[in-house]
Design a protein around this nucleic acid. Structure first.
Lengths: 103, 103
DNA sequence: TATAATACTATGCGTAACAAGGTATTTGGT
DNA sequence: ACCAAATACCTTGTTACGCATAGTATTATA
């Protein structure tokens, strides 16, 4: 998918994954990969951003002798998803506008 | 609509307008305004970009003693619209992915 | 024993939307 | 006659975000 079209989409994808339960960086990528490509150097800044803006909280736990950072969605994060879905109503109308003029 | 979500959308909106026939800056804004907000300082760089990439051609004509720059879509521009619509198939699937996880 | 997979992080680049500001003419209201 | 709004175009600087590239380090697998 065109890079520009992903803008603003990836944040919400990550939040949508976390809505189903806590997860961690590497796993989030693999959960999203069937739907949208997101590379590490994109994801980790997103996670940092989401934490800073209060959309997720974190806990660090040991797994197989390695530290893993788990991310959990907050109320604010859920609110962000709903905001996105509202925007999508508008987006869909614009999409239709373009399709109508393409016949 | 969120600024980031507009990324990559506005170019195609402009092209979709031009697919219906030539138009000029000010008119394009008014034709789009019921569907999506686009300000002048966004539109004119877009038009320049589209011209540079061969998606539109221009002609300048006098109208009421004032110069007006008319923009016309090219084959390349039409191709760009179709590329966008392909990307949208993917986008729609991601949208559904998010909606499903938001119940 | 090497290579893939797992797991996280930092730096720098390019693109696009927009705020703010500038220029100039015409039209409409009072 | 005068001012505001509408018409019409353009430039500069800022900000945000996706990604390429690179680095670090452990564990599993062939």
């Amino acid at each position: 998918m065109d890079v520009q079209l992903k803008r603003g989409l990836l944040d919400v994808c990550v939040l949508a994954v976390l809505k189903q339960g806590e997860s961690y960086g590497y796993k989030i990528i693999s959960e999203l990969s069937p739907y949208i490509e997101i590379c590490e150097s994109t994801l980790y800044p997103i996670l940092k951003r989401l934490e800073k803006s209060g959309c997720v909280t974190t806990r660090t736990a040991e797994h197989n002798g390695r530290l893993r950072k788990y991310y959990m969605i907050t109320q604010m994060g859920k609110h962000k998803i709903n905001e996105f879905l509202s925007d999508m109503d508008e987006f869909v109308k614009v999409h239709e506008f373009i399709r109508r003029r393409n016949v």
